[in-house]
Amino acid sequence: MLYINCPHCGMRSQNEFSYGGDASVKRPELNKEVSDQEWDNFVYNRKSLRGKHLELWQHISGCRQWIKVERDTATHEIFRTFKADEEVA
């Protein structure tokens, strides 16, 4: 079970969180022309990375905040976590 540092609550076990997928995906702006390809990339196409992956988790049984987690998909090592509005350098 992963041990995730919620930027709002501190170290918490994985069973308090739910997974939310790739955090690097950016939703196209509303009311903007979007090509089929761009839209497909947003909705469907994801890389199945081996290694460092920036992903979303929601602290669903805690503060209910969505957070960003930088995790190695192969080793499960967690490098850093960020608040939803924090820029990932």
Partner: peptide, 13 residues
Amino acid sequence: LSHLEYYLQLVWP
């Protein structure tokens, strides 16, 4: 609820 929180916190803060 999670869906609304997702958009409020991440997409349209």
